[in-house]
Computed example of a mutant assay.
Amino acid sequence: MERVLLSVINSLQDSQKGFADIGEHLKVESLKRYFLAESLKRASFRGDLEEALHQHGVHDIKETGTAVGTLQRVWGDLKAKLGSGDHGLLETAESSEDETKKIYADALNQELPLPIRQLLADQQAHILASHDFVRSHRDALAAK
Rank of each mutant, 00 (worst) to 15 (best):
G76H: 02
G85T: 08
H56M: 15
L141D: 00
A52S: 11
L6R: 09
A20W: 01
H54L: 13
D98P: 05
K62L: 09
L12H: 11
L82I: 13
N109F: 06
G85R: 07
L53W: 02
L114D: 14
A143R: 10
F133Q: 04
G69M: 04
G47K: 08
H59I: 09
A129I: 01
A107H: 03
G88Q: 09
E2S: 13
Q55T: 10
Q16N: 06
F19K: 02
A121S: 15
V28Q: 14
E91W: 08
L89G: 11
L40R: 14
H56G: 12
F133I: 06
E97I: 00
Q123W: 00
L31T: 12
G85S: 10
V28N: 13
I116P: 02
I22G: 00
R46N: 04
K41L: 15
A80N: 08
I103D: 15
L119Y: 00
I116G: 00
R135Q: 13
T64I: 03
L90V: 02
L120A: 01
D77F: 07
S11V: 08
Q13F: 04
Q110E: 15
L40P: 03
L26V: 03
I127D: 00
R42S: 05
E29T: 08
A37N: 15
D14E: 04
A80M: 04
L120C: 01
I127R: 01
D132I: 09
T100F: 08
G47L: 04
L114N: 12
S30C: 09
Q110T: 05
V4E: 01
L36W: 10
S39C: 12
N10Y: 01
S39Q: 10
Q72D: 07
A129W: 07
A20R: 03
Y104T: 02
N10L: 05
L119S: 07
L119K: 04
R46H: 04
T92E: 12
H131Y: 08
R117G: 09
H87T: 13
L31K: 10
F133D: 03
E97W: 04
R42P: 04
L112T: 05
H87V: 12
D98C: 10
D14C: 00
D106M: 11
F35S: 14
R117D: 06
S7Y: 03
A93V: 03
D106L: 02
L40C: 11
R42T: 01
S84F: 14
D132E: 14
S84K: 10
G65D: 08
Q118P: 06
E63D: 06
L82F: 14
L141Y: 01
L112K: 03
F45E: 06
S96Y: 06
E24M: 06
A20K: 01
A80Q: 05
K27E: 14
R33L: 13
Q110A: 13
D106R: 11
A142Y: 13
H126C: 05
D139G: 04
N10T: 00
R3C: 08
G18M: 04
D77C: 09
K62Y: 09
G65S: 04
Y34K: 15
T70D: 05
I9L: 09
F133S: 01
R3D: 15
Y34R: 14
G23T: 00
D139I: 02
K27I: 12
Y34V: 15
L26K: 04
Q118V: 11
A143D: 11
E51I: 10
R138A: 07
A125G: 02
A121H: 09
